[in-house]
Amino acid sequence: MDEQTKSIRDFVIMYNKISEHCFRRCVTSFNDRELSADEVTCVERCAAKEILLNNRFIKVFLSVRETMKPM
């Protein structure tokens, strides 16, 4: 698998995990076809927090990796 394909696959996996986590956390009723305003707000905030967390994690990982000595 080439690097671009792996990157796309990793992105899709991350997107699916965030979507599932926020859906389970925020969607509480299946009585309507549309999400309620509260559910929409919750999903948007949840996804934003997850994306920020992931970006911070990547930055820390890259900075730690740069300081490590090759074996």
Rank of each mutant, 00 (worst) to 15 (best):
V43H: 06
E44M: 02
I58G: 03
R9C: 05
T41K: 08
T67S: 13
R33I: 08
V64G: 00
L52T: 11
L62Q: 14
R33D: 09
K49V: 01
R33L: 06
E39K: 06
D10W: 10
A47K: 05
S36P: 02
L52M: 13
V27C: 03
R24I: 02
S7L: 12
T28I: 06
E34W: 03
R33A: 11
S19H: 06
R65P: 08
A48F: 02
F23L: 00
I8V: 09
L62N: 13
V12Q: 00
N16S: 04
F23E: 01
E66R: 03
Y15P: 07
I8E: 13
K69F: 03
M14E: 14
F61S: 02
N31R: 04
D38F: 02
I18S: 05
R45D: 07
C42N: 02
S63E: 04
M68L: 14
I18C: 08
H21G: 07
F11V: 01
D2K: 06
M71L: 09
A37H: 06
E34V: 01
R25F: 07
K59N: 13
S63Y: 10
F23N: 04
R25M: 09
L52S: 11
Q4S: 08
K59S: 14
E20L: 01
V12G: 04
V43G: 03
L53A: 05
R24K: 07
V27S: 04
M1W: 11
M71T: 01
T28P: 04
M14H: 15
P70Y: 15
I18D: 09
S29C: 09
C42A: 03
Y15Q: 13
S7M: 05
S19M: 06
D2T: 07
S7V: 12
H21D: 08
T67H: 13
E44C: 09
D32N: 12
F30E: 10
F61K: 08
F57L: 00
K59Q: 12
V64C: 15
F30S: 10
D10G: 04
I18Y: 05
K69C: 11
I8G: 03
I13D: 12
N31I: 09
I58Y: 09
I18N: 08
T28K: 05
N16K: 11
V60A: 13
D38W: 08
M68F: 11
H21F: 01
R24W: 12
F57H: 13
N54A: 14
I13C: 09
K6T: 14
F57V: 00
I8R: 12
L35W: 00
I8C: 06
F57A: 10
V60H: 13
M71W: 11
E66H: 10
S36F: 01
I58V: 10
E20M: 05
R56T: 00
V64F: 15
N55S: 15
M71K: 14
T5P: 07
E34M: 01
E44L: 09
L52K: 12
E3I: 07
L35A: 02
D38N: 02
V64M: 15
R25H: 12
L53W: 07
L53M: 01
R65I: 08
P70S: 14
N31W: 05
F57D: 14
F23M: 11
R33S: 07
I8S: 02
F30P: 10
M68E: 15
M71G: 13
I51N: 10
L35G: 09
